[in-house]
Design a protein around this nucleic acid. Structure first.
Length: 368
DNA sequence: AATACGGGGTG
DNA sequence: CACCCAGTATT
């Protein structure tokens, strides 16, 4: 089996795509900014999820200049709940980069893969996606879908996580456009992976099953080849519900790093799978919490790299935050303090809150 | 080459 | 539960 996408395969793929492709809010737009927005959101994120965020984003930031001019706060607010928040920060940087270089070219946007690769937040996938879809530039998208499809189509035994595998696919696909519009071919491969060549596929309905090495050899489930995944650790911690005059205390995380800039309950998470009484006592002392009582329940959540279990407590601040909140925050070592109105116990996992958004916007609530 | 980085859908 | 998703930046 030669690793080559024949013209017949490309034609069959495009015929299938013409019939089965989904409608998406950004699909069919010729505005590079629209394509760029969708691709930033689609990184490691499913189409169905992005469909809920894309319209809000376009309404708030209709073009690259409005995004470049916006405050990061407002950018994060729209992104809230999408995850991988460095994407939003990098997108903001990328918009500033484009706006600055806009005068160097006719369109504000570059029209090729190499130039897009220089934009903050834009890697090999996004550079190929935007340049091919918006400008017809012949660069192949090598995403999770494509890796799976090609592994089966050509019985590729290389681990799909390696650079070697990625490079091999980029070469194979860049020679496989066969006169079709590169942007549509790219989308067609991804759509095939998303709708047909799924982790557990029904190969009888596949337009390429006659060309598929894995299918013909009856080895579909052997591909793609991937290294064993490491188990993620459990981290436990505590969070404190501090109510005062029908308001609830929230703390803002530092701007960089994990969940950067988002708001949360005051509390901590340990790099340990069991509670630590000393850490507990230390936190209460350092943050001057009093009347601490267990709420008798905990919250569990799984992030990309650890499971989390947070035990919940009610408490009061020794010094009410309403008086000299900012000075007090610095004194007790918190980044910032805020509060949200609260008429019942609402568990707010994460959200952004400041003067512009006095009520916050809970990403996830559990009422009790 | 490994690791950090979210949240939701799916079986 | 495990696995996966239109990946990128950092170490």
């Amino acid at each position: 089996m030669q690793k080559h996408i024949s013209k017949n395969m490309a034609d069959a793929l495009m015929a299938w795509f013409g019939h089965h492709r989904r409608t998406m809010p950004w699909r069919g737009s010729d505005d590079p900014y629209h394509i760029w927005v969708s691709e930033m959101m689609l990184q490691q994120t499913q189409v169905a999820t992005v469909e809920n965020y894309y319209p809000k984003w376009i309404a708030r930031f209709p073009d690259v200049f409005s995004l470049a001019a916006a405050d990061l706060e407002d950018v994060l607010k729209i992104w809230e709940g999408l995850g991988y928040y460095t994407r939003a920060r990098n997108f903001h940087k990328g918009a500033k980069y484009i706006a600055e270089h806009a005068k160097d070219r006719k369109s504000p946007f570059p029209d090729n893969y190499e130039e897009w690769l220089k934009v903050p937040g834009v890697g090999p996938y996004t550079a190929a996606a935007v340049s091919s879809i918006a400008f017809g530039y012949p660069a192949a998208v090598v995403d999770g879908n494509v890796k799976r499809v090609m592994a089966r189509l050509f019985c590729l035994d290389e681990d799909i996580a390696t650079q070697k595998y990625h490079k091999m696919l980029f070469e194979i696909m860049n020679r496989g456009f066969h006169g079709h519009h590169p942007g549509w071919v790219n989308q067609a491969w991804m759509e095939l992976g998303s709708l047909q060549c799924t982790p557990r596929p029904d190969c009888s309905r596949c337009p390429l099953n006659g060309d598929c090495c894995a299918y013909k050899a009856g080895k579909t489930q052997r591909y793609p080849v991937k290294a064993e995944k490491k188990k993620i650790p459990v981290r436990c911690g505590a969070a404190f519900v501090v109510l005062h005059k029908n308001r609830m205390l929230m703390v803002r995380r530092h701007a960089e790093g994990f969940l950067g800039g988002l708001w949360e309950f005051p509390g901590y998470t340990l790099k340990s799978d069991r509670p630590d009484p000393l850490a507990f006592a230390e936190f209460i002392r350092e943050h001057r919490l009093v009347n601490v009582r267990p709420l008798g329940r905990s919250v569990r959540h799984t992030y990309s790299h650890f499971h989390q279990r947070i035990d919940l407590f009610s408490a009061e601040l020794e010094v009410p935050w309403e008086s000299n909140a900012w000075a007090e925050a610095r004194r007790i070592g918190l980044d910032e303090l805020g509060s949200v109105p609260c008429s019942r116990l609402t568990i707010k996992i994460a959200g952004i809150l400041d003067e512009k958004y006095p009520h916050g916007s809970p990403e996830r609530e559990e009422n009790n």
